[in-house]
């Protein structure tokens, strides 16, 4: 066919026929409710949030002024916020490696089981579906210094009881313990899906190629093939770690220097009505989440296509 086609004769001056326009309207109408909600729930709030963050607005206040980047400057000299940031980082540093590593280990063990697989899935997945508020209350009881069975077991073994919920240094690790407990089953199921997707041929080929021990096979085939899954698991675990909230709300309410990022935002924004300042904190939180999830989008694009 020639590169340049002769211009088409047009029977009408209107560029779009009525039917084409009708079809476009139809598509538009189908998308319209969701578009409206997207505007109301995501787009406008994000803009408003950005607007708040450069003001000293307080909910209910009659006057407010533009303060530029003062809120952000204040955040990075606010000991409470810095502590919350540090606590969240510590929490994430515990939950991410353990929540992902243990889940991978359990998934590898469960993957080999044929008959008992359903049983293990139930046992490890049950915490994912449970209400964390209620389960945090249960954990509080389990870890109780005198009434809880955990410390009772320590005593029976001749160890000193551990003040999980009294020692300020142990508060965040204790919350991380609950976080790991809840996220483990979720990650395990994702890893199981990843493991199932690895073609059996590949493992057999590795065996023929001389990968004798299971560890060799894991390192030459399983681990590289799980790359995309691991990436995804790492990102979702990180984001859920940044959002840690329930444990603080149930166990300490932020006392003893145990605020986390989201709890600090909650206090500033909703308890103290410091809307402007809390908006700035929220933007910092959002930036953290976006850095991780955008990184994942790019990484996945490159890695997922083996």
């Amino acid at each position: 066919m020639s590169v340049i086609d002769p211009p088409l004769p047009r029977t009408s001056a209107v560029p779009m026929s009525r039917r084409t326009r009708r079809m476009m309207w139809r598509g538009f109408l189908f998308a319209a409710p969701a578009m409206g909600l997207l505007l109301a729930i995501y787009i406008i709030p994000v803009l408003v949030l950005a607007g708040f963050s450069v003001t000293d607005y307080q909910l209910g206040a009659l006057s407010w002024g533009f303060t530029g980047f003062d809120n952000f400057a204040r955040a990075f000299s606010d000991p409470v916020f810095l502590r919350a940031l540090g606590n969240t980082a510590l929490y994430a540093a515990l939950v991410i490696p353990l929540g992902v590593g243990l889940a991978l280990g359990v998934a590898l063990l469960v993957h080999g089981r044929k008959r008992s697989r359903a049983l293990w899935e139930v046992a490890y997945f049950l915490p994912v579906t449970s209400t964390l508020v209620a389960m945090a209350t249960v954990w509080q009881f389990l870890l109780h210094p005198s009434l809880g069975p955990v410390n009772a077991a320590f005593r029976a073994l001749g160890l000193d009881p551990v003040a999980f919920l009294a020692d300020p240094h142990l508060l965040i690790p204790t919350m991380a313990l609950m976080g790991i407990w809840q996220v483990l089953g979720f990650n395990m199921v994702l890893f199981l899906a990843g493991l199932t997707a690895i073609p059996k041929d590949l493992l057999e080929a590795a065996r023929l190629d001389g990968a004798k021990s299971p560890l060799d096979r894991f390192l030459t085939v399983t681990w590289p093939m799980l790359g995309p899954t691991t990436m995804f698991v790492l990102v979702t675990t990180s984001i859920s770690a940044f959002k840690v909230f329930e444990q603080v709300a149930v166990l300490t309410k932020g006392r003893q220097g145990s605020e986390t990022l989201l709890y600090a935002i909650y206090l500033e924004g909703f308890e103290y009505a410091e809307t402007g300042y809390a908006s700035a904190l929220t933007l910092i939180f959002l930036a953290l989440v976006l850095i991780v999830s955008i990184g994942q989008t790019f990484k996945l694009d490159r890695k997922v296509h083996y």
Binding site: I41, Y42, I44, P45, V46, V48, L49, F52, L59, I239, K243, F245, L262, I265, G269, F270, T275, A278, S279, T282, F285, L286, V289, L290, S293, I294, T297
Partner: peptide, 13 residues
């Protein structure tokens, strides 16, 4: 990519 918690403030207001 935007968690609901990030939108809570403006929605609340």
């Amino acid at each position: 990519c935007v968690p609901m918690q990030a939108l809570a403030l403006p929605l609340f207001v």
